[in-house]
Amino acid sequence: MADTSSTEEGPALPPAFTEIVDDFHALTQKDRLELLLEFSRELPLLPAKYAGDHDAMEAVSECQSPVFVKVETGATLDEPAHVYFDAPPEAPTTRGFASILASGLEGLTGQEILDVPDDVPHRLGLSEAVSPLRLRGMAGMLARIKRQVREGTAA
């Protein structure tokens, strides 16, 4: 497996994101889209405390579909954070991006999440398979996650 954790494209990725990026780059464009759809089917369920309660979550306005995100942080940036998404099943691309972020960020500390490069959506190699608007939606998800981490640990 090629090491894409630190490339000429930018700063290093966390190991889980490196593996995801490597998986996408090992495929043709058509198969990358299939992998994105596979991720969409693997989006973790919301915890009961957030299910049906979008007021407790933040809407991601950059997404064409109604997507909501919630980050639970520890008191400091050195503690693990947990990211939760709610995205409709009829929006598989959006769900796929949410699932990629959930998988890539799971178990990371707040600081490690803040250190994730903002260009992760573009590193997946999907620019020929999905629209720039959709990639902007994933970037919007990541930006909101980082803001919630900063706000959650500053409180």
Rank of each mutant, 00 (worst) to 15 (best):
77 L>A: 15
52 G>H: 04
106 E>M: 11
97 F>K: 03
58 E>L: 10
119 D>C: 11
70 K>C: 06
105 L>P: 00
144 R>A: 09
70 K>Q: 09
88 P>A: 12
114 L>P: 07
88 P>G: 13
126 L>W: 06
100 I>L: 07
72 E>C: 02
69 V>T: 04
121 P>D: 09
127 S>D: 15
119 D>F: 06
116 V>K: 01
54 H>L: 09
129 A>P: 00
136 R>E: 11
98 A>P: 02
63 C>M: 14
129 A>L: 07
125 G>W: 10
60 V>K: 01
94 T>C: 05
90 E>K: 13
65 S>P: 12
99 S>Y: 06
88 P>C: 02
139 A>Q: 12
143 A>T: 13
93 T>A: 15
127 S>L: 11
88 P>D: 10
64 Q>L: 12
104 G>P: 04
106 E>Y: 00
103 S>F: 00
140 G>F: 06
93 T>Y: 10
87 A>K: 01
125 G>H: 09
105 L>Y: 01
80 P>Q: 08
99 S>L: 07
136 R>F: 03
123 R>C: 08
99 S>C: 08
117 P>S: 15
117 P>Q: 15
122 H>G: 09
137 G>A: 14
80 P>V: 10
120 V>F: 09
90 E>Y: 14
72 E>P: 01
91 A>R: 14
108 L>Y: 05
83 V>D: 01
128 E>N: 12
125 G>D: 10
141 M>E: 08
123 R>V: 10
53 D>S: 12
116 V>I: 04
94 T>D: 03
129 A>Q: 13
131 S>N: 14
137 G>Y: 05
146 K>I: 02
97 F>G: 03
107 G>T: 14
115 D>H: 10
121 P>S: 11
65 S>R: 04
92 P>Y: 11
107 G>Q: 14
76 T>C: 06
109 T>V: 11
58 E>D: 14
99 S>K: 03
89 P>V: 06
54 H>K: 12
53 D>F: 07
54 H>N: 13
139 A>M: 07
142 L>N: 05
70 K>E: 05
56 A>W: 03
86 D>A: 11
112 E>G: 13
134 R>G: 06
76 T>N: 10
